[in-house]
Design a protein around this nucleic acid. Structure first.
Lengths: 197, 197, 197, 197
DNA sequence: AATGAATGAGGGTTCATTCAT
DNA sequence: AATGAATGAACCCTCATTCAT
């Protein structure tokens, strides 16, 4: 399996760095090869073409990203805690790997229609996680009934995404992770059942 | 003034269409010139370079976009109505001009770092409009005190932006404008002072 | 019309020379451009791709080649004289333009299946000229009846082609044109000793 | 001796097939290795480089080709019968091995100047066979005196070669071997009507 | 002001060959 | 002897921009 071989990971890591530093279009394959310490041609033993590198970067990194979040959520037992944890993990992981943050928030938007479809496919499991939390919250009676789940999910994801993008574009000058509780409060107070007398 | 001359607008309109139809990367200057009915060289009498066309497209279109929203808001007298109107107008305008929707939500994201900075500059007045509504709502006592305004604004903008992007990517198969009240409810219920006894 | 513009001919002439000197595969587009005194990109204003240069070279040169032969034949009034003239002209023209000789006899065989079809299309008028001479000779009673015309034509063309190829590969060290009468005699009379009464 | 080892023949046979199936330019060394059931590197234990494979293909196959013809001719006792037999065998062998026919008539022509020289070297014994028949025919008084032997040989070879090439390009839709007597008649007797008493 | 022919820099990809195992 | 992963040189073509008319 190609993905097990050491050079595969080498190239992926090199690609993330090179793309984060130079932007997708200024990231020549030869630059990635150099950073990875392999020959140009070697890239093509592991990836179909340049676009495939980008997809694979996202696939690998996003896979880990989602896995981490799912793991962290699994031992929380109500939707509120899960949502807070998701937000924290989302922010924390991108804080920890700023190359990845730049790639996901900025460079990946470079993509053409076809690539965008693939990225959305990869992103889907994450959106499902959010959907599940919403459904669970509703069952638990802590979120309203009758929510338009896809719409709410878009709003949650859009909120997180925009906040991270702003943070990346401001060159990560402030602490992203500490925003989590406020963001969570914004979202849940909108979702929560109101306690009236 | 160049911007007054008829060919300026012709080129801007052609650029929006060409980009929406072909995608950012397949939008050569010569294609825009052809659609605009001018010679390739003529483009450079009106625009410094290709990037300048794109910035100008966004400038012109976003200027009108914001102006429309400001106009519509001006005769509302509370932050809640203003916010609802802003959301409605945001959705309605992009619904009405689907070329513009594609360009702003998908194609223009594919630009390089520098262009992205400029686009954000142009977007600023819109963000100020949102900031003003938040401030006004707080003053009027209908939004909470002590809000982190830039953060809230990011959440609002991120919410709208993600919803429109999803709608564009689903090829505008449903009615975007009718989502406005639900979106507004999500946002304001989060923001609103809770009425406890 | 592109073919009328001076650069078109410049490029064609440069291509013939460069291909004759270096062989088709060592004939980089940039080399042809340099010899023609134009920029690399200019080539692509006149030709679709590298293969198109080759086809056009053959088209142009072969067009003239055939035209010359047809002209020379037209004022001969029997098939024998026509055939002799065709052979003479075939040899004489390739003798006069040794770059062309190299390209047609050696480099053009480089072609892939698709290109070969196109070359055959271009060659067709020449083969028709040969067919006509055979038919005329038969009508005039100087060639046998019941000839398999396509086969005879292949034999005639193959004969001329092989002789020229040998001459090119021997680096044109002897006089090709002076072979014409012997070749003509072989074609018309064959190898055998004649039995006359 | 390398040529005795089993993989040598395997690679040669694979090369003929791969070239016939894919064309000269799409015949990568790795494809030949795969078809031969050996590793890429193994090729270089038997052949100096890619060109050496091609030369060896031609050498091996042409060696057999000529041997067959020489054998068949040896028990004929006049030049006319020998010539007819040569033509028949030439046609028959290429009919029997259509991969070889494609390779010799089409694909191998696409080679570079140097390779072509070597191929001609290999072809030489065949040309000598033809020369010998011509000389014998003259001695026997059945061919004319004073023939320009190399020229006549070129005409004979060119005739056969062109006929086979046409047949290959027409995708071998008709029976090549049955043309032999007509071709022989053309060569020996020419086009002209014979004047017998 | 307008044209559009000409420019030429730049990069993704292929594939014959090598060499450590 | 055999493998096959790794190498890296080589080249066609695109397209933003210029400039003579």
């Amino acid at each position: 399996m190609k993905k097990q071989r050491p050079k595969y990971k080498q190239i992926i890591e090199a690609a993330v760095e090179v793309i984060a530093d130079n932007g997708y279009h200024a990231s020549q394959v030869s630059k990635i090869a150099k950073k990875a310490g392999v020959a140009d041609g070697t890239i093509y033993l592991y990836f179909k073409n340049k676009e495939d590198i980008l997809i694979s970067v996202f696939e690998e990194k996003m896979g880990q990203f989602i896995e981490q979040i799912v793991d962290s959520i699994s031992n929380k037992n109500n939707a509120n805690d899960k949502l807070l944890t998701l937000i924290e993990m989302h922010f924390r992981q991108l804080t920890a790997d700023h190359h990845l943050a730049i790639v996901t928030q900025l460079e990946l938007r470079q993509s053409n229609a076809e690539l965008r479809q693939k990225i959305n496919q990869i992103l889907k499991p994450y959106l499902v996680v959010i959907d599940d939390i919403i459904a669970e919250g509703t069952e638990q009676g802590i979120f309203r009934d009758g929510l338009n789940v896809p719409l709410i999910r878009q709003m949650i994801f859009g909120t997180l995404d925009e906040i991270v993008t702003n943070w990346v574009m401001k060159e990560q000058k402030y602490d992203l992770a500490e925003q989590a509780p406020v963001v969570h409060a914004f979202i849940t107070d909108g979702l929560s059942v109101k306690h009236k007398h």
